[in-house]
Design a binder for these strands. Sequence first.
DNA 1: TTGTAAGCGTTATCAG
DNA 2: CTGATAACGCTTACAA
Lengths: 334, 334
Amino acid sequence: MATMKDVAGMAGVSTTTVSRVINGGSASPAVTRRVMDAIDTLGYQVSASARSLKGKRSNIVGVMVVDVSNPSTTQTLHGITSVVHAHGMTVMLASTGGVPQEELASLEMFAGQHVSGIIYMGTQTREDVADALNRFPAPVVVGGQERGSLRWPIVVFDNYDAGYDIARELLGLGHRRLAFISAPLDDEHVGRFRLQGFLDALAHSGVTPPDHCVQYGDFSVEAGHAAMQRILDGSGPPPTAVAAASDTMAIGALRCLRDRGLRVPGDVSLVGFDDIPVAARLIPSLSSVALDERELGEMCAELLHRMTQREDTDVTRVVLGHRIILRESVTSVL
Amino acid sequence: MATMKDVAGMAGVSTTTVSRVINGGSASPAVTRRVMDAIDTLGYQVSASARSLKGKRSNIVGVMVVDVSNPSTTQTLHGITSVVHAHGMTVMLASTGGVPQEELASLEMFAGQHVSGIIYMGTQTREDVADALNRFPAPVVVGGQERGSLRWPIVVFDNYDAGYDIARELLGLGHRRLAFISAPLDDEHVGRFRLQGFLDALAHSGVTPPDHCVQYGDFSVEAGHAAMQRILDGSGPPPTAVAAASDTMAIGALRCLRDRGLRVPGDVSLVGFDDIPVAARLIPSLSSVALDERELGEMCAELLHRMTQREDTDVTRVVLGHRIILRESVTSVL
DNA sequence: TTGTAAGCGTTATCAG
DNA sequence: CTGATAACGCTTACAA
């Protein structure tokens, strides 16, 4: 790799001048030209390590996720990379599996790399990890979870609102016997809030579902199937509408309903969350509450960028909207 | 951030000694102990930039993908990160959208970061990008595509073999009227090879599908639907078995068949590629040729690691296997 | 076993 | 407008 010295030599100037040309300092047109030429012919490339060592600015954004292969994470990552690249910075990725030990290790690694900032997409943050994040020497943006004890700004979907809205929607279609397949309550991300919003909306309309009509599952298709089974096995008539906290669980529920000879939406209306790509392709096509995960990533990156530029440091919370997408799986009972 | 000098000061030794302790050089137990303590209490963290500047080794692996949000990419990325992290290295991610301009920019960025190596997962590599890769100062591993003009070792699935095998399988079940929904032929990744293997297997059994029974699509559900339509609109009786180069296109085909009143597998057997998670959940569940994308990532990372350690530099090609997963969508006609 | 000192490639400071 | 020089934090001969 050619160094700045090489460029300086070829252009007949000092390294200082080369540095100026590169970083937009003042230099005569003639010199600028010679330096540029030398850079081109030598294929010179600024050394990020040297620059970072000197200037403290690495132009690296550390991104910490639980699982790179999770579909929604994936969309978020897409949003992040596009914005980060647009700002001429680079993404350093850490996939931690949600293991606190790994999260701490990644933070140390980020610190060692002098990252310009971090986007943290953890879900259940252990206390010591939260401490480490709070102490981190560069700005951090928290994406997709409730804040907990983190002092950093956060970008979230309003899951409570989303749960509330879908309940209103179903009520508006005349449904009164409703069930909800929730995420585990200890999932800070979506567990408590979607369910709570859903139940509150029902309560405001004077509807109280029986206990067996609120079930829990771990997002898997199997869990959705099992939860639906428990709902149908409860006493009383089956619900006329079921909402699941994820499309994957809704798919499991769909399967269960079909196995039991119940038709969707003829007997039971069904709605999921996340609007995963296959939702529109199922038969019947699945209604869903869509959260724009990609936008989440973009907002996180944008916000972090502003923070690294020392603008807007007063933003403390960004709430993203959702869209209810009604498809064949939902019908009115009026 | 505490520096090495701080640690040295606190431990009452020179920075040289601290460096030795950290890098496993010889030091007396007493000193080692004091240094370790100082490191702990100061929360000292080696500066990656300084180390990289001095030693030329950044311990960063550059990973270049077309689209982070593509499901198979995502699995590969998972494999890569786990292995890279296991080796105490870090992943720097570049998502290029397949745009040559972006690919070149990412390579420059990687060069500037002095990455220890690159895993390149592009699909259609333009000549100048190939040149840049061939010239790259650190080792490169190419993942998931045929080599083209790249001089670096490559890790691939044998798509030809996979196409061949699934054809043999269908032939073995008695099918003689077969159709294939292929990826575009200019897709180096899977386009030509899956189709060619498929057709060759048929030829070896003396079967030649009519022209309209080979159609092309861009992997989308819609394209699969349209391709299936063209197949059914052709002259002669419909095929008894259809293979699609991706599960997504197979899903489109499934929908089309259903729209036309044809039953799967009663009238037509159907098989896809990739075994995406929903394949097993469709009704009927979809047969598929599974490629372990995660293993692809692991192998790439492992191979690259060996190359950076200067072992095994003679490996030039790693071929990964595939599994045929038969589910409800395929039946025998014997 | 331990320390001194030079240098990696860049930028900031201060002169000219 | 341009250049000499020091310094960023670390590793590595070379000495002691």
